[in-house]
Structures are given as structure tokens and as C-alpha cells.
Design a protein around this nucleic acid. Structure first.
Lengths: 250, 250
DNA sequence: GCCTATAGTACTGTATACACTCTGAACTCA
DNA sequence: TGAGTTCAGAGTGTATACAGTACTATAGGC
């Protein structure tokens, strides 16, 4: 499919949504700033109808906030909001792991997860870890978490996890790239990978409480990375999510 | 404000949303059935633009499902989906209670909760409990849960709890009315009220794990009520949420 | 000098028209 | 008889025009 076909096949609504999301995350639209529909029309080049739908979608994605008198503004988050969102994701992923462990999963459905685990092992084994390896880790890590959540076999739960993870600072890989600049990088990656290994083991042995606890703890690595990155002021440009902070750190 | 003014002050979008939601929950639109925009225009009496917005809102409320080729259909739920949604709500409310307990709340902010607790006590003390008392209990119970969640002081968490509770079968009061027809009614109510008492006590004493555990268990009363109501086939008309079940129980 | 009222402007809410796509059925050809 | 193709219909995606409302700035009065 050519690029022009691809452009044509995507609806105007989606195009507007992507453009606006990008503007928000890149910080071109500041937290608290109102987004006028006409302004959005100018920026995206599509008409008001799809722009409106895009704004509604971004609202329930959590990036925008409805103004009582009408219209939308860019949502502002506190550091606490971000940490809570991470804890929230950890809690939900913990529930997913517990469901998988308690209800039991077939050896067959555990296979892709174990393969993913092995791939991650290979990446983590490098020392020092190249930037490309970090990038590959982000992809693989997302895959691991997705597979894990699916093992819960619970559509409502998966739906909520996806929703929470859609926030740019709450996804499992949100701070991995920022972490790449830290001296503790390798160690943190090894710990995270051990969590992965433990949760698979717990699910296999139907240890629900253990599976849940380790996934909760796993998410707290992200919180730790966030704090380290902010404190060290390292590679803040790798963290577009921080553009949403009420009082910017830079 | 007169009724006509009230009708005028509500936007067409909201009116369409209410009308469509009512049709879904009352079972006039069956699970899996496609909702055409023009059909919705006929039913609601508003034009396509607000109808579309209403459909999008109902989709992310979880009542509708997008069809890949365009448009929406009524979502179908399994009994497992419903039970998982209840467990999900319990987990989130548990997290809220833990946050409140660990972070500490002022005696002042605990007051409204204790008043609510006392009001509920008075309702539960009756034996037998009148239908009016059951109805009052539903209102008071919703208030108690709302106050409790607010104590977490976590906007992202409250947002998700509200979202999950918006599903008609996942709200804290979803099955209370159905329960009113059961012989075990009074006993279940007493147990639930004891949970309320325990969680307040746990928060006051900053016992995070205890607060979390009791709220999780609390939600399982709803699951128990659901199973009882379905098994006994009692007052299924009081449970509009069951219209969303894939294979209806009646 | 400050507060209030009014007019203008900008923006959202809604309706509708048009274009394109997808689906289903009927007809034709092998 | 079956499969493929074409045509009709319905339905969604998009653009735009119009109406109503909220905000702002300016001018006048206290």
C-alpha cells in the first residue's frame, strides 16, 4: 500500500486525533490551555465534524478535559497523579495475573509468553546495553505485558488496563528510554526482567497472591524510574509525557 | 425550574444519550443488534450530529461496541464478564481505601462518612425492612461509596472507579433491590453494613491492607446477590442490567 | 476612579446535504 | 447448478451553514 493510499484509508477523525495528540504531548499546547475547534480545524486541515469527534475521543483518553460552558482544555497532571496512575496500572495488571494464576492457563497458551521472556533475556544479557537494544526492549516489554493481560481471559479487565496504559506516563514502557541514560539502567532492567520471570512461574504454579504481588511491585519500577529521571534531569526530552505536568520540571 | 425549561436546558446530545441508554437497558435493543444512526434519529427526535456524539459516548461507557466497517452494535456480556466487572470494582475501591488509610485522612473529612454510616445503621436496624427503606438504602449506599472513594484524594483513581461503576451491573447498588426479594436479604444487608464499619475503622487506624481487603470482600456481596437472584429467578424485572446478557436467563 | 451595562465578537451546538463505501440480492455465464 | 459480477439500497464519513450562547471590551453613569 502506497503512502498516499494509507493516508486516504485513515479517516479524517483519526488523522485529527493523531495530530492533536501529538501537539499535546510535544508541549505545543500547554496544560490548561483551551483548544478551540476552529483552531483545531486550522491545524489539522479537516472540518469541524471529525475534529469534534477527535476531541471527544481525546477527552475520554484522558488528555483533555471538558469545560462546563463548552469546549475542551488540555488536562494538567500533578506528579502525584502520575504516580497514582502507575500504581493503578500495577493493581490492574496484578489482578490480571491473579486471574490467570487462579483460573489456570494451558501450557500451550503460556508458550508465547515464555518465548517473549527468552527474547527479553537475550536483550538484557548485554553489558553495556546499546540504545538499539533498549528500543527493542521497549517493544518486547509491551508485547510481554499484552500477552500477560490476555491470559486473564477477562475482556472487561483488559479493556480497563488498555485504557489506563493509554496515558503516556502510565504505560509499562513509559520510562524505559529515560532510564537508558541512568547509571543504574542495567540493574533496574535486570530486576524488571526477574519480575517477569517470577510472574510466569507463579501463574504456572497457580500461585495467585504471588502473581498479583509481583506485578504490583513491578509497576513501582516505573515510579522509581520517573523519580530518578526527574531528579537527575536526564534526558527529559525522552519523556514527552512530562509536558502534561502542571508545573514543568525543566 | 419548570419541566419544559429543564428539557430545554439539556443538550440534544445528552437527551439522545439518555434515550438510547434507556432503550438498551430496557431490552428494547437486543445484545448484538446494530444501531443505525437514522434509526436512532427517528427514535430520539434529534438530528444525526448529536446522535453520533451520543453513540460515541455510549461506546466508551461500555454499552456499545464499534463495528469495524462502521457504526455500532449493542454490546453483549457473559455472566463471567459481569462477575469480573464486580471484582474489578472491588479491586479499585480497595485501592482507594488503602490510599486513604496509608496517606491518612483528617478527622474532619471522616465526619460525613461516619454520619452516612449512622444513617445506614438506622435503616438496617428495621426488621423486616420496608421497600422504601431498601430504596433509601440504595441512595445512602451510593453516597457512602462516593465519599469513601473521595478519601483516596486520587483523581485518576476516582475517574476509573466512576467509569467501571457506570456499567449498570457493576455499581455498588446494582443488586440491592433484587436482593430485597430474597429471604436472606436482611442478613446480607447486615454483613454489608459491617464491611462499611470495618473499612472506616481501618482507615482511621491507618491499616491499609485491612481497608483494602475488606472492600474487595465487600464487592463480592454483589456477586453473591447476582448469583442468588439468577438462581432463584426472583424479581428479574428489577435487574435491567441483565438485558445485556448474551443468553438471557428468563 | 470604579463599577455596571451593553454591544460586539468568537465560539459551540445543531441540522442537513452530499459523497463514498459496504452489503446483499439478483442475474448471467460457464 | 454454482460461482462470479453487477447493480441497487442503506448507512456512515465529512463538510458546511445557521442559530444560540458565553465571553470581552468599551463606554457611560455613579
Amino acid at each position: 500500500m502506497s503512502e498516499r493510499d494509507a493516508e486516504r484509508s485513515v479517516s479524517q477523525t483519526v488523522r485529527a486525533q493523531l495530530a492533536l495528540r501529538d501537539m499535546i504531548l510535544s508541549g505545543r499546547l500547554r496544560p490548561g490551555e483551551r483548544i478551540s475547534e476552529l483552531q483545531a480545524v486550522d491545524v489539522t486541515g479537516v472540518s469541524r465534524t471529525p475534529v469534534r469527534l477527535a476531541l471527544v475521543r481525546l477527552e475520554d483518553e484522558g488528555l483533555l478535559q471538558a469545560i462546563p460552558s463548552g469546549g475542551f482544555m488540555v488536562k494538567a497532571f500533578t506528579e502525584r497523579d502520575i504516580l497514582d496512575s502507575i500504581e493503578l496500572r500495577g493493581t490492574l495488571e496484578g489482578l490480571a495475573a491473579r486471574f490467570a494464576a487462579e483460573r489456570g492457563v494451558s501450557a500451550r497458551s503460556l508458550e508465547p509468553l515464555k518465548e517473549c521472556l527468552a527474547d527479553l533475556d537475550q536483550l538484557v544479557r548485554q553489558d553495556p546495553i546499546s540504545v538499539e537494544a533498549f528500543s527493542a526492549y521497549v517493544t518486547m516489554n509491551a508485547r510481554f505485558h499484552a500477552l500477560l493481560n490476555e491470559l486473564s481471559a477477562s475482556a472487561p479487565l483488559i479493556r480497563e488496563i488498555d485504557r489506563v496504559s493509554a496515558l503516556p506516563f502510565a504505560s509499562p514502557s513509559a520510562f524505559v528510554m529515560a532510564q537508558s541514560a541512568l547509571p543504574e539502567a542495567h540493574q533496574i532492567l535486570l530486576i524488571g526482567q526477574d519480575h517477569h520471570r517470577v510472574v510466569v512461574d507463579a501463574i504456572e504454579n497457580r500461585e495467585g497472591a504471588r502473581a498479583e504481588a509481583v506485578m504490583r511491585e513491578h509497576s513501582r519500577l516505573a515510579a522509581r524510574n520517573l523519580r530518578l529521571a526527574i531528579r537527575n534531569r536526564t534526558h527529559l526530552d525522552l519523556l514527552p509525557a512530562l509536558a502534561l505536568l502542571k508545573s514543568p520540571v525543566e
